[in-house]
Design a protein around this nucleic acid. Sequence first.
DNA 1: CTCTTCGTTCCGTCTCACGGAACTCATTGT
DNA 2: ACAATGAGTTCCGTGAGACGGAACGAAGAG
Lengths: 240, 240
Amino acid sequence: MLEKTWLMLDAFRPTGGPLRLVDIAHRCQLPKSTALRLLNDLTELGVVVRRDGRYLLGRRLFELGSIVPLERDLRHAALPFMHDLFEATRETIHLGVRDGLDVVYVEKIRGHESLSLPSAVGGRLPLTCTGVGKVLLAYSGQELLDEVFSRPLRRLTPRSIVDAGRLEEEIGQIQVQGLAYEREEAQLGNACIAAPIFRGGRVVAALSVSLPVARFQPARLAPAVKTAALGVSRVLVKSL
Amino acid sequence: MLEKTWLMLDAFRPTGGPLRLVDIAHRCQLPKSTALRLLNDLTELGVVVRRDGRYLLGRRLFELGSIVPLERDLRHAALPFMHDLFEATRETIHLGVRDGLDVVYVEKIRGHESLSLPSAVGGRLPLTCTGVGKVLLAYSGQELLDEVFSRPLRRLTPRSIVDAGRLEEEIGQIQVQGLAYEREEAQLGNACIAAPIFRGGRVVAALSVSLPVARFQPARLAPAVKTAALGVSRVLVKSL
DNA sequence: CTCTTCGTTCCGTCTCACGGAACTCATTGT
DNA sequence: ACAATGAGTTCCGTGAGACGGAACGAAGAG
């Protein structure tokens, strides 16, 4: 029953709702009566909320999610540097960690005129399609690389890297430069530059600047991103 | 059983762990064997995580919490203005909403040298002890005020307002000025100025600037906070 | 070496989660 | 006007599995 509950909550991805009863039941392959009962229970608990007949994820979930320790400490350490980076570049800043073969975005800073990205805090994208993901991949060791190469590479745009050789080469470059570039591999029109954040010798996260390809100037952005990522790494060493 | 599960997750407040089995069992008034079973289930689901014998809240919770729609839309609308405000003041910025008689912080921006506040995203404080809370209180209607006054006012510091008359008077001032001030009522050494965010004629949130009392200059901060809050209100009207 | 204290395992009891079926209520099509 | 569809909801008999007391093992503390 617990399993069913969390399956239902997952059904709310990626928007958090609003969803109708039947949709939820269908996505989870559950009988309507079962779905209804569980949703009623969850509503009573404040985990989901009902608004004009539809269900949405509720505040209790938000509150608990906000205090998840790993993410919270990382964000706490990284946010000031992300703000520095934002002020220096005026572009969208992302902080992401790895979970399996995905990158999960943990924090984001955007300006008024920000481009709309397929990423959102709490969202997932394939490691191989994003700057943040490629950095994490390049520093996470051989076993992970083997696993990535053991299945076909996912594609989000015509520019996504789907050739294993091409990716391998790029991973090598990233390891040398300490930086990853990405051009329209996650979303057309969008480019990104990313740098790794370390703790105790291992990558724990990555920082990136995303912007329209038209404005993409790697040489200008590279030092700023590197500096910021390094700053976060230094704080992490002390605090965690 | 659902209820027990969420009771257990609440036991992780406010830090998210790490907690020992017995502590969790004790906080929830559950037998050890029951607590163990549930924690095992939750661990398997990725909702909690086990690290050297202790339990912590896990990433699945973080991801789901991040996509809770109400909070997400509000944050999305407010963040650019919060950054403006941060750049103008270089002080800690908060965004909070009301839940019952508490304020729940939904977003926060802080600089490198930031003061450590009792607030954190996902954290709760009594409405009457914070700038954000007092603003929300002042614009949420009479029923809420009645409820607040129907029980003794909570105290966080020697300066917290515990006199009903005093609070009533201040509520009046807030309604006139469209701004709330707070001096060491939530934490000694800390002051704050807050302004309401509206949507469809009702308060939905409040924005605040927090800083050491020594640097507190209401006259300088007031216009910036008001402008930012107004900006958010305008965006909300369009988008939601 | 004994006394705690914590995590873990086991198992008999009985609750309550489960989901099929039937019902209501709009909405749509003919 | 009247079926027909598809939504949300209610009901209830069955049986899986949640429950928690008790006993066990391990690791410190004094």
